[in-house]
């Protein structure tokens, strides 16, 4: 464990908590893409299959349980509890255009052609594009609530911090995982446009409103 990865995990944790607070406090899921949350649930389920087979640390197990639990709770809030406030018309990204290529790529490019490894690789590739339905929804509605912007900033920062973690681990431990790094770079690049808007607008107290 290193400071970059710890900050990354805390940023990821903060994003999930911010999202839950937004939903619970406003009793609304307006502006939140249910499809992205379903993709994140798929990512966590696929990645944490080893939850019961390989024990890394208490921290690792607790975080995995928390991530899986909260993402399914988020889906419950979107599609059941606050269903009336879910904006399905604007949440229209075709996720099959993500899942099929990512699934194919996981079969072709992985560290080891073994079931658990291919599923892990699938979760890494899927996570790098899982935010697209959410960013697509914001571009369609033309705006994002400030609290949603904070959620996205924390979520984008988490993988950017993981990139720093991988640089550190490369020099400190000789650790290098090309698949995770490439997917992490793609994932972070997808947020760049949003990071720019966040820093130039939200940090100055303005709201993010894209030219519709």
């Amino acid at each position: 464990m290193n400071i970059f990865r710890l900050c990354g995990d805390m940023s990821h944790l903060a994003a999930i908590i911010i999202l839950l607070l937004k939903m619970w406090k406003t009793r609304s899921v307006a502006g939140i893409s249910g499809k992205s949350q379903i993709l994140f649930a798929t990512v966590f389920t696929a990645r944490y299959l080893d939850l019961f087979t390989s024990f890394i640390s208490i921290y690792n197990t607790c975080m995995k349980v928390f991530f899986i639990g909260t993402v399914y709770f988020t889906i419950y809030l979107i599609y059941m509890k606050f269903k009336a406030t879910y904006d399905s018309n604007h949440d229209s990204f075709r996720v099959e255009f993500l899942i099929v290529p990512v699934g194919g790529l996981a079969f072709l490019v992985n560290h080891e052609f073994a079931p658990l490894e291919i599923i892990w690789t699938f979760s890494i590739y899927l996570e790098s594009v899982a935010i697209l339905p959410q960013l697509f929804m914001i571009s369609k509605t033309g705006e994002a609530e400030t609290i949603t912007s904070h959620y996205l900033f924390a979520l984008g920062s988490y993988r950017a911090l993981y990139l720093c973690n991988w640089i550190y681990r490369y020099y400190a431990e000789g650790f290098f995982d090309l698949i995770a790094v490439v997917a992490g770079v793609v994932q972070t690049i997808l947020y760049c446009d949003f990071f720019y808007l966040y820093i130039t607008k939200v940090m100055k107290g303005k709201k993010i409103s894209l030219p519709a």
Partner: peptide, 10 residues
């Protein structure tokens, strides 16, 4: 460099 077995990151 070796990649991580088992995957020890979240």
């Amino acid at each position: 460099c070796e990649n991580n077995k088992p995957h020890d990151e979240l």
